[in-house]
């Protein structure tokens, strides 16, 4: 029975899965370096073969991530409809922020307190747009500062060495922000709140349950109904075995993320900076 609405293409899902794996790996190797003087950090470094190896792995995987980011950028450039350019990236189907996101945000807050109606979100909720752009700029900031530190001799041909001190702190704080945001807020919104519990499979299966779309993305559903596109975008649920794989993969990453989060919080005061 076709009762799910297509949301993501296979390419987008593969990108997300690769990003998940590399993000967790970068988080683990990076934290093992940051917590090097705590037993927890030492143990985690030993998982990757010691803190030297974890740094080397951090650099290689980081470079892969940056290449992935560049491929994603090329993907965007190819996907944008350049014939009617400014119009094609403005509108409800685009991830670019628009004024309605701001009003949606405040109306949503009002709904939390029961003061307002639940806003009719379109294809992308403001929190989804925020997640996307946070990763986008986070990749740029962490990537550039990371490259500076991975190739310090090259970097200092164009800037003084004290720029590396600054790059290190920017890299660290941005990484802490990114991990905390993903491990607390992104995981909660995708997994733990009642409408998605135990897991929002949209990013793995590529489709969302129509009932969830109805309550959460009402404007989008209306738009699809009015334009007659809805029928073509309905798909059936994935086979049980594939769903098991989605759950295992998703929860393995959630568990690793929470492990990193808790370990980092517990040991935070023992770090010698």
């Amino acid at each position: 029975m076709k009762n799910r609405l297509k949301r993501f293409t296979p390419v987008q899902r593969i990108f997300h899965a690769v990003l998940m794996l590399s993000f967790i790996f970068m988080g683990a190797t990076g934290l093992s370096r940051m917590y090097m003087n705590t037993p927890w950090g030492k143990w985690m470094g030993s998982l990757f073969g010691g803190y030297d190896v974890s740094l080397a792995a951090h650099k290689y995987v980081g470079i892969c991530m940056i290449i992935g980011f560049l491929i994603h950028f090329l993907y965007l450039m190819i996907k944008i409809n350049w014939l009617n350019f400014p119009k094609s990236v403005i509108g409800p189907d685009s991830l670019l922020p628009r004024p309605k996101d701001m009003t949606d945000f405040f109306q949503h807050i009002g709904w939390f307190f029961g003061a307002k109606k639940l806003p009719e979100f379109d294809r992308w909720g403001y929190w989804e747009k925020f997640d996307y752009w946070a990763v986008f700029w986070g990749m740029a900031i962490i990537g550039v500062t990371g490259l500076m530190m991975a190739f310090p001799l090259f970097a200092t041909r164009y800037m003084p060495g004290w720029g590396l001190n600054v790059a290190f702190w920017i890299h660290r704080i941005e990484a802490i922000l990114a991990m905390a945001h993903v491990f607390i807020i992104h995981f909660f919104i995708a997994h733990l709140r009642r409408h998605h519990f135990p897991m929002d499979r949209a990013m793995f299966e590529g489709s969302s349950d129509l009932a969830t779309i109805k309550s959460e993305k009402a404007a989008w559903l209306d738009r699809l109904k009015n334009s007659g596109e809805l029928e073509g975008m309905l798909v059936a649920q994935a086979a049980p075995l594939r769903r098991v794989v989605f759950y295992c993969f998703g929860y393995a990453v959630v568990a690793s993320g929470l492990f990193l989060l808790i370990g980092a919080l517990v040991n935070f005061r023992f770090i010698l900076w």
């Binding site: 733990l192 009932a211 649920q237």
Partner: peptide
Amino acid sequence: PHTILWGIRELFFKKETTVEAPHEKQT
């Protein structure tokens, strides 16, 4: 705070499980 309030609010808000055609309930 946004996420905490959202989580609390959804505890008191049941989403509809039927949409125009009969569909089986899913997670």
